[in-house]
Structure formats: structure tokens, C-alpha cells
Design a protein around this nucleic acid. Structure first.
Length: 549
DNA sequence: TCGTCTATCACATTTGAAACGC
DNA sequence: AGCGTTTCAAATGTGATAGACG
């Protein structure tokens, strides 16, 4: 099964969607390779990459590999666009919630016989926490410490290029959760934070399902898939879009019949719930004051232009980076305007956000008004906090088959009832640097686990190092026997995660598959740290020192 | 203590796969 | 074996309520 359950995309639709998908390769706009992937609204642009030349493709040793020819098109791009324009929100729940629109891609250009692994991770788009006020997303302060990164590996991985290209590749079953102790392998996110999903395609080979000494990979980022995670929808536009486009309406009361009638009659009656009505009432009151910011329009135009031109655009200044639809993030002028207007409105209206807004720390507002956030690539360069695995990640395997299931290498624990997920240590911003290591539970992980299942911790990586920094970490594992690990305990270097029994931390050496996955992750981080320093994006990584277990 | 904001839960509803019967 | 119907699990957003916070 290439597609998850419930997918209705027919082969026909798949073919038809080809042109509409805005299909791109790793060298063009929509598929933004590694550091540049931070570009969409994240503060990092591929500044060094010549425009339109495809020069953001690595000159690495893997250049001869076909991975650079892989093109990925986002399915239902128009739908994503709609959501993006409204400011996409994704519900996160304790039990895990699927994304809607679901992440589906059409892949072409693969070598039909080569095996690939397709996986998704979701990284923080910035270091802000947001709140929804005045029908806008506004920065509400500093972001919470990032959750431990997890990967969602497509259940079919590894599979041949022919397999992936046969039909749409759906990540429909990917679930988002805000449960820090989630045992199901869902991707853990913080509520009211902005995130950017990334698709990674990793080349596997016949010897090692997860990679080889020349593991090539490419990363594709679709800026329109960025979203703010919420526990309940804030923007009624998003609610409406979800209802209109998702099957489960969940409408009750009189609105229900209206909706059904409307559907039966194929008419688009406005279905307005009480809450929506409430919101609209407030927004109407507010919108009575015209938005006079001259920069607002320019910003919108710029946004549109950037959007239309994808993430490959060149920006002279970091603050010119794509903004998407969350105005407060980059558009300081707009943010300022919003503040002023809100201050005005707040005097006359009893708004839910009134107090918060008025009492918002001035530093926050000033910070966003007077200066731009640091470029994302700089953030990537700085020592990242290590979001290595926690001991509870019993989901450290792909559910693609027995050989993957065995990857967990855990014999003292029952196989976790989950799949497709792995931890990653994508660490997007500097602000969660070393200084937070001691205070943030999720940044503390057992040494051995780090070494065996996670990509190297960036804080220990020197961007200028001639040796791939990840190698050191792998050797750490090689040098530490299991007994040594046990003697040192999981907290040798890092305090163990709160509330987790030490026994859970016991692990066997990783299988080749796991190593390969780590290697991929390592290569990714290496690419991120090194390439970012050059402000040049590779889009393809080569693992130079593969230590195949 | 109160107000605000966010998270959680139960609920009604919808969909599609599985089970079942013909 | 193929088709149609029924059943049920899984999914959705809604709204009430709880909890945290200042």
C-alpha cells in the first residue's frame, strides 16, 4: 500500500494532477534543499545560491546520483494555498490528530529500481509563541522549548522508485500530538507555535535499507504547508475551510440541516456556527477601523509575489524573507500597526485578548518592531539544543516490515504499537541553545541513546570542523559497550527525562538500518550546520564516514 | 478572587473498510 | 466470485468545562 487507508486519489487523478502540482525538483523553487528549507518565513534564505540555476544542488560526491533529479509535487497545492493564505492551523491533541490537508506528494524522477526512504519531519518555523488576537496571529512571546523531534517515515519505506512514483505518496496517517509523553510515535509539537513540515527523500541501497556510505538525500519544503499548531481552532476561516474540505463535519444543531441542504442543492450556503458568529461580530467591530497601514498592502503584494515564486527567491535582506500568512512574524510594520490598532480598540471593546495585549511585555513588541529576527541560517549555525531522543521513544523503527521492526533492537521491551516514526534532532533555532540544556526536560537525554539513535548533537559540532562531526558521535557509541553504558547510566551527561524509568533506556546496539537512519540524520544535521554557514544549500548529502554497524 | 487563555473531554456526525448475507 | 447491505472503528469540529496563570 503506497497510500494510506482512505485515500481516494485515483491513478487518473494522479496523472491529472501532475501539471497542477507545480512539480519541482530539488533544484528549483518548491523543493528547497536543506538550509534553504528554513527560508519560507523562517529567516533563512538561500542567499548564496544563484537564482534559477539549480546551483543549490550539492557538488558533493553524490552528484552522479539521481536523487538530484527527483521532482516532488505537492498534491492539492491549491487547497494548501487556501489554508496558507488564511493562516493554516493544525489541531494537536493528546491522542494525536491527523493533518488536514494531509501531506501528499507526487514524486517523479526517481530511479525505478533504486530504493528510497521517504520521511517527514516537522520543525519549528521560528522561535515565537503565537496568540490569535483580532483575527490575526500575533507573536505572544518566546517559544516553548521544542519538543523532541520525531520523524514520520512513510510505512512503505524503503521502496523502489517505481513504487513511489506509481501513485501519490500520502502521509495522511501522520499524527500530531501535544503529549510530551506520547507513546505512539506521533510527532510532538507545542501548541500555538509555528511549524514547517519537511519531506526528506533518502536513497537506500540493497545492502542497507536506510543508507550507505554515500547516502544521498534531498529535502523538499513547501512553504504553504507551514502551520500553527493549536488545540482548538482560532481562525474561523480555517474552521470553515476544514469543514468544507474535510469529510467529518461534526456539525450539530440547526447549522447541520443548513449544511446538508446546501450540499444537497449543491449550493454554497454560508454555514455559520455560533462561535463563528461571535468571532465575526468582534472582527466586524474591529474592522470598522480601516487598516490604513500603507505597508500592509505592500506586504501582501510581496507575500503574494514570494509565494508565487516559491522559496527560491533571492532576498537582499533577511527581513525580506517570505512571510506567508502570519503577519506578525516578519512584518514589523504590520505588527506595529496591529498593536496600535489593538490598543485603540481595546479601549472601547471588551475583547478577550484585551488584557493580554495591553499587558504584553514591551520587549516582545519592541523586539519585533525594531529589528528583524536573526536569520534562520544563523540560527542553524549556532549550537542547537540537542533534541535527541528520550528514552521513551519505543517507536524508533519504521513500520515497513519485519526487517524494520527488528530495528528497534529492544528485547527487554515489548514492541511498541506504533510505526513509521523515529526521533530526529532537527533543531531549528539558536535560542534553545546550550544554555537551556539544563532547564528543559526534553533537552536532556541519555548519552547512549543519543549515540545510538539520534543524530549528533549540534552543539558539539563545529561548523568549521573538517571531520564530519557526526562521526565522533557514532564512534562514541562504538567505544561504549552496553555495560559501560549501563554503568554510566542514562544521565551520565544529561539528566534523564523526567518521570521515565531508567529501564526504558536500556537499548541494544542499533541495527544497520538504525545506523543508516542515524547516518541520514547525521548527514542532515551536518549539512544544516555546514552548508548553512556558507548560506548555500546543498540539497544532497553525502555521508563521508559511514560506519556501518 | 477574578478574568483570560489554553487544554481536555464528551458528543454528534461522517466516512470507509470489514463483515455478512444473498 | 461478485455484489449489495450492515456494522463498526476512526475521524472530524463543537461546545462545555477544567486548569493554569497573572
Amino acid at each position: 500500500m503506497l497510500q494510506d487507508k482512505g485515500l481516494s486519489e485515483s491513478e487518473e487523478a494522479f496523472r491529472a494532477s501532475g501539471s497542477a502540482l507545480g512539480e519541482t525538483s530539488a533544484a528549483n523553487a518548491a523543493s528547497v534543499p536543506e538550509p534553504a528549507l528554513a527560508a519560507p518565513g523562517l529567516g533563512g534564505a538561500p542567499l548564496g545560491s544563484p537564482p534559477g540555476t539549480g546551483a543549490d544542488v550539492a557538488t558533493a560526491a553524490a552528484a552522479e546520483q539521481t536523487i538530484e533529479n527527483i521532482k516532488v509535487g505537492l498534491h492539492e497545492k491549491e487547497l494548501w494555498k487556501k489554508f496558507h493564505e488564511a493562516g493554516t492551523e493544525m489541531i494537536i491533541t493528546k491522542a494525536g490528530r491527523r493533518m488536514f490537508p494531509s501531506y501528499k506528494v507526487k514524486v517523479t524522477g526517481m530511479n525505478p529500481k533504486t530504493k528510497y526512504i521517504l520521511l517527514i519531519d516537522i520543525v519549528p518555523a521560528d522561535d515565537h509563541r503565537y496568540k490569535f488576537c483580532d483575527n490575526k496571529w500575533m507573536v505572544a512571546g518566546k517559544a516553548e522549548p521544542a519538543m523532541p523531534g520525531r520523524l514520520y517515515v512513510h510505512p512503505d519505506s524503503p521502496a523502489t522508485g517505481a513504487h513511489w512514483m506509481r501513485q501519490l505518496v500520502s502521509f495522511q496517517k501522520l499524527k500530531l500530538t501535544n503529549n510530551h509523553l506520547d507513546p505512539f510515535g506521533h510527532i510532538i509539537l507545542n501548541s500555538m507555535h509555528k511549524y514547517q513540515p519537511r519531506l526528506h527523500i533518502v536513497k537506500a541501497d540493497e545492502n542497507n535499507a536506510f543508507g550507505s556510505k554515500n547516502t544521498a538525500f534531498c529535502t523538499h519544503v513547501f512553504p504553504e504547508t507551514s502551520f500553527i499548531s493549536v488545540t482548538s481552532y482560532q481562525n474561523h476561516k480555517i474552521t470553515q475551510l476544514k469543514i468544507e474540505n474535510n469529510f467529518a463535519k461534526g456539525f450539530r444543531g440547526s447549522d447541520d440541516s443548513d449544511l446538508r441542504v446546501a450540499r444537497l442543492q449543491s449550493k454554497e450556503y454560508p454555514v455559520i456556527s455560533k462561535s463563528i458568529m461571535r468571532q465575526r461580530l468582534v472582527s466586524t467591530q474591529l474592522s470598522s477601523k480601516p487598516d490604513v497601514s500603507p505597508l500592509h498592502g505592500a506586504h501582501q503584494a510581496l507575500q503574494h509575489y514570494q509565494y508565487e515564486n516559491g522559496a527560491h527567491m533571492q532576498f537582499a535582506e533577511p527581513q525580506d524573507l517570505p512571510l506567508n500568512t502570519f503577519p506578525a512574524q516578519r512584518d514589523s510594520s504590520l505588527f506595529y500597526h496591529c498593536l496600535k490598532r489593538r490598543a485603540d480598540s481595546a479601549r472601547h471593546l471588551d475583547l478577550p485578548c484585551k488584557r493580554s495585549y495591553l499587558e504584553a511585555p514591551s520587549t516582545v513588541a519592541e523586539d519585533h518592531y525594531f529589528r528583524s529576527p536573526p536569520p534562520y541560517d544563523q540560527q542553524m549555525l549556532s549550537p542547537s539544543y540537542c533534541s535527541e531522543v528520550t528514552p521513551r521513544d519505543a517507536c524508533m523503527y519504521s513500520g515497513s516490515g519485519p526487517e524494520i521492526a527488528g530495528v528497534s533492537g529492544v528485547d527487554d521491551l515489548p514492541p511498541p504499537p506504533l510505526s513509521c516514526n523515529m526521533w530526529t534532532s532537527v533543531s531549528p533555532y539558536t535560542s534553545y541553545g546550550v544554555q537551556t540544556m539544563e532547564t528543559v526536560p526534553y533537552q536532556s537525554f541519555p548519552t547512549h541513546f543519543t549515540a545510538t539513535t539520534m543524530m549528533p548533537r549540534l552543539p558539539t559540532i563545529s561548523a568549521q570542523s573538517s571531520q564530519p562531526p557526526g562521526n565522533a558521535h557514532f564512534s562514541v557509541y562504538n567505544q561504549l559497550s552496553q555495560s559501560q553504558v549501563r554503568e554510566r547510566g542514562p544521565s551520565a551527561s544529561f539528566p534523564r527525562e523526567r518521570g521515565l524509568p531508567a529501564a526504558v533506556c536500556e537499548r541494544k546496539p542499533p541495527s544497520p538500518h538504525l545506523n543508516a537512519a542515524n547516518e541520514f540524520l547525521y548527514s542532515q544535521s551536518f549539512s544544516l550546520s555546514r552548508e548553512a554557514s556558507l548560506q548555500y544549500h546543498s540539497g544532497m548529502g553525502t555521508v563521508e564516514n559511514w560506519t556501518d554497524g
